[in-house]
Amino acid sequence: MPRVQLTREDVLDAATRLVVQHGPQDLTMRKLAAELGTAVTSIYWHVGNRESLLDALVERTVQEMGALVPRGRTPVDRVVSVARALRRELRARPHLIAMVHERGLTERMFLPAQQALVHEVHAAGLRGARAAGVVRAVQFQVVGHVLVERNRERSPVQSPAEADLWSPDLAEHDPALARALARPADPERVFVVSVRALVGALLGAAAG
């Protein structure tokens, strides 16, 4: 079958895959051409030079981060759903997010998520500085949690491990607590519990 004509989106899709897998330092025009089975000159024709290609990847990442759709029936559920979606997107593309940050576009990237949070916070009855406080608190909670997760994933093997440290005596004679803390943490569960508690408290205070 004859090859379908290459498009700019094809080039950006392939470049995104390479960056996600190996980081931007390994993205070269030759590797990208090999990935697409085409000539290097064709890559240049579609996206310009390497810097133009990186700029295009950053711009597309910023745009894609805007597709966060709140879900749930209650204000707390909907705010938590935005936070979960934002965490998922940040974790899925760390190299691309780093590129966005290096180009000074981090605040612009977060704007759609902030707007989604503003809409839900307004729906919950908050306005002004109190609404802004909730939006910022949720955003900082998401970013902070992602940074902690990545730090734990990159850290060397711990010896002794958490499972070796906890005993009923250390847990103030609470064996169930000791067993729970000896098990590996579930980052998703920890995230949802903390964000739900934060949002519930902030929106609940507003309702009160």
Rank of each mutant, 00 (worst) to 15 (best):
T16G: 12
A206F: 00
A85Q: 15
E172V: 05
V11C: 06
P168V: 10
A171H: 06
G104L: 01
A206C: 01
Q21M: 09
L18N: 04
E120M: 02
R73H: 10
A124F: 04
V4G: 10
V76F: 03
L54P: 06
V79Q: 02
A182C: 13
G23E: 02
A182T: 11
S167K: 11
G133H: 02
L53W: 14
E102I: 01
G208Q: 00
E153F: 07
R87M: 13
G133V: 02
H145E: 11
R150C: 01
H173C: 01
T38M: 00
V20T: 15
Q158E: 13
V80W: 09
G72H: 10
A34P: 00
R152P: 01
V148K: 08
E89T: 12
D26E: 08
Q139F: 05
L57K: 13
R154L: 08
V146P: 03
E149N: 10
A132V: 03
A206T: 00
A197V: 05
L32Q: 11
L198Y: 12
A98D: 14
A34N: 10
D169M: 02
V100T: 09
L181P: 04
L18F: 07
E188D: 15
M109F: 06
H101P: 00
A33W: 09
R189Y: 11
T38Y: 02
H145D: 15
E51R: 15
A39S: 11
E153W: 08
L203F: 02
R196M: 01
V193H: 14
D164W: 10
S194F: 06
H46G: 06
H145A: 15
A34D: 13
Q115I: 05
R189W: 11
P187T: 14
V199F: 05
A14E: 03
T74R: 07
R189I: 05
A201R: 13
P94R: 14
L96V: 09
R73G: 03
A197S: 12
R127H: 13
M109W: 04
V193M: 09
T41Y: 09
D164T: 05
H22W: 10
D186W: 08
D55Q: 15
G72K: 09
